[in-house]
Nucleic acid binder design. Structure first.
Lengths: 333, 333
DNA sequence: TAATATTGCGCAATCGTTTGTGCAATATAA
DNA sequence: TTATATTGCACAAACGATTGCGCAATATTA
C-alpha cells in the first residue's frame, strides 16, 4: 500500500497523511481529529512508507556500507557483529561486502556502494593499495584495523605496536632470547606496527642478533610453512610470536605434527585472541584486540564525520590474556 | 553527477543518454556516433547512475535481506560468506541483520527490510516463532538451517536426522552404550531432527534404556553445565554427542576442568564442525555441515523463487569428519 | 515528384515520498 | 459589521532515473 492509496481512502491529500505519519502534525497545524484518523487507518493497513522513495526524496539512505576482507574470519565476524548492532541502534542498516582479500573486489564494492548512495563507509581494507579509497570525496569513511599513515582518512585500530611490545616483553621476562616472529601481510600498517614493536623490544633488550621475522600473509598456510622453516633452523627459536589468529592456527598445526611440546619445547604467543584459544592444549596466551570497543569506536567516529566534525583517530589498547602457552626457560650462561 | 547534467553537457535528452548507458541503443535506434559520444563523456565524468532513483523507477532493488541470529558464530559467519559471494556474482547486494537471537529483533529486521523493498529474503530464523515470517506475502523467502514443517516456506538445511544417525552409529560401533546427547534450542527443527536421529539409532540398537537428552540452547554455557550434570550421574556416560559447535566448546571446557581424558575416559562427537577442531586436543570428531553448499543452494533456491518457480526444499547430506575424540571401549558382558 | 518507410531522437509521465507555499474557512479583534 | 489572524489542509514541484509514444528528418520506393 502506498501513501497515495492511503490518502485516497481517507479522502485526504498525501501531504496531510505524510505530515501526520512523519510526526509533523503540529508544525503544519493538522487537527488532532484528522491526525488520529490517519494514524488509525495507517495501523489498519499496516502502512509502511516506501523507503526507496523516501531515500530519493531526502537524499539520504540511512545505510552504511561495510567492507570486509573475509567475514568468515572470526576477527571480522566479531567486528561485523558489533558494527551492525551499534548501527542499528542508531537507525542505520548495513550493506555488507566481502572482498575475499582481493583489491579488485574492494574497488568494485566501493563503487557499488557509492552508486547506492550509502551515507557512510566502514572499511577494513585489504591494505595493499588505497588509491581507490582516497578518491572518494564527499563521503565519510572510517578505516578499521588496517589504515594508511600518509592519508587523512579516519581510522580506528588496535595499538599494534604496544601489543607487540607487551608480548615480546613477556617472552623476554620468561627468559626467552631466541624469539621468532611470524608476520602477516607485508606493508600493512598493523603488521608493521606489530613487527616494529617486536623489533624495538628485542633491540632494547640487547637481543638484536635474535631478531627473526618471517612470513608473508595472514593465513594458516603461512603459519604452518613458516613454522616448519623455523624448525629447520640450526638454532630453533624457543619462542614464537605469531601475528594473527590464522597464523597461530598454522603454527599449532606444524608444532603438533612435529610432536613438539608447547610450551615445554616451544613457547607461543598469538596476536589476536579467539574464544577457542581457551580450549587448545595448551590454552594459548594471546594479545586480545578489543573488538567490541573497536566496532563501537568506529561507528562513533563515523557519526562524528556524518555530523561534520573532525574526530581524532583512535588506537585502542590491546589486552594481554595469559594462558599456558609460554614457559620460562633458563638462559644459557 | 546526474543523468540530467550529463545530458545537458552533451546537448542531448536524458532519454537518449539513459538508453545508451543501459545498452538499449539498438532497440531504440540511437546512432553509433551519438552512442559513442555518450559513452565517452560518461567515462570522463565517471558517471554512475543513482541506484536509488533506478530502484524506485524499476520497482526492484537488487538487494537481498540476510537475517541471521549471530554473525559472530562461525557457523553463520561462514554462511554469510558464501551467501554474499554468491549473491554478488548474480548482481545482488546484501543488507545484513543480526537478530542477537531475539525474536523481537527478528520481527523488526523483517519489517525494516520489507520497508526497504528488498527483492528477497534469506533467513536463518531464531526458530521459536514463525508467525511473523508467514505473514509476508509477495516476497520470496528462503529459510536456512532452521525451518518450519507445517509451513510452505522454502528452506535449505542439513539432513540433521541423518547426521545424528551417523554419529550415534559410529559411537555404538565403537562399543559405546551409555551415550548422552546434549541438545540445543528446543522445538527447533534442526534440534528435533538431530535428537530423533540419536533416539532412533539408540532404539534400533536396543539401547533405549540409555537414551539421555539434556540441555536447552546452543550456547557454551549449556554445554558446560550439561556436561557437569552428566558427570554427576551415578553412571557417567562413556560418550557425549553434542549438538552444535558452541555446546561442544562448553563440553570440552567442563571435561578439561574435571581433568577427564578425552577420549580415554569420555568420547565426544560434535554436530557442526569448525576449523579449529583440528587443533584441539584431542582433535574433535564431528559431523560437518556443508556450509558452502548450503549457502549456494539457498541462493539458488531464492533465485528460482524470484523467477516464479517452485523449487523443492533441500536437505543436504552432512559429512563425517573422523578425528580422535572417540575411543573404542569394551562392553561389560 | 509524391508516397511511404526508416532512422534518430526527445516529450512527458512515472515510481512513492517530502515540503514550500497558497488559499479557503473559521476565529478573533476592532 | 468589517478587517485581520489563525487554523486546516491541498497543489505541485522536487528527488533521478526509465520508457511508451510521437514527431521530425532522411532514405527508399513507385
Amino acid at each position: 500500500m502506498t501513501l497515495k492509496e492511503l490518502a485516497e481512502e481517507l479522502n485526504m491529500s498525501t501531504t496531510t497523511v505524510s505530515r501526520v505519519l512523519t510526526g509533523q502534525e503540529k508544525k503544519y497545524r493538522i487537527s488532532d481529529k484528522t491526525a488520529d484518523k490517519v494514524r488509525a487507518m495507517a495501523k489498519v493497513h499496516q502502512f509502511a512508507p516506501n523507503q526507496i522513495a523516501r531515500n530519493l526524496r531526502l537524499q539520504k539512505t540511512n545505510t552504511i556500507g561495510l567492507i570486509i576482507p573475509d567475514i568468515s574470519n572470526p576477527f571480522f565476524a566479531n567486528l561485523a557483529r558489533t558494527v551492525e548492532v551499534e548501527l542499528r541502534k542508531r537507525g542505520k542498516m548495513v550493506l555488507l561486502c566481502d572482498t575475499k582479500d582481493e583489491t579488485e573486489l574492494e574497488r568494485e564494492s566501493l563503487s557499488l556502494l557509492m552508486g547506492r548512495k550509502v551515507d557512510g563507509l566502514l572499511i577494513a581494507p585489504i591494505g595493499k593499495e588505497h588509491h581507490h579509497l582516497i578518491q572518494q570525496p564527499e563521503i565519510p569513511i572510517v578505516l578499521i584495523d588496517r589504515y594508511f599513515e600518509d592519508q587523512d582518512l579516519s581510522f580506528v585500530t588496535t595499538d599494534n605496536f604496544l601489543g607487540a611490545c607487551i608480548a615480546t616483553d613477556f617472552l623476554i621476562e620468561k627468559g626467552h632470547r631466541n624469539i621468532a616472529c611470524i608476520q602477516g601481510l607485508l606493508k600493512t600498517t598493523p603488521n608493521e606496527g606489530r613487527v616494529s614493536g617486536y623489533k624495538k623490544t628485542m633491540l632494547d633488550n640487547g637481543l638484536s642478533d635474535y631478531i627473526k621475522v618471517i612470513g608473508e600473509d595472514y593465513s594458516i598456510a603461512n603459519g604452518y610453512e613458516s613454522t616448519k622453516t623455523l624448525l629447520s633452523l640450526p638454532e630453533v627459536p624457543t619462542a614464537i610470536f605469531s601475528l594473527n589468529n590464522q597464523i597461530s592456527m598454522g603454527v599449532m598445526k606444524a608444532l603438533k605434527e612435529h610432536r613438539l611440546e608447547v610450551p615445554g619445547e616451544v613457547s607461543l604467543i598469538s596476536f589476536d585472541d579467539q574464544p577457542y584459544f581457551d580450549l587448545l592444549s595448551p590454552p594459548l596466551t594471546a594479545i586480545k584486540q578489543p573488538m567490541s570497543e573497536i566496532g563501537r569506536a568506529a561507528v562513533a567516529t563515523l557519526f562524528e564525520l556524518l555530523e561534520g566534525n573532525h574526530p581524532p583517530n583512535q588506537m585502542l589498547k590491546p589486552l594481554f590474556v595469559e594462558r599456558s602457552s609460554v614457559a620460562p626457560i633458563y638462559q644459557k650462561p
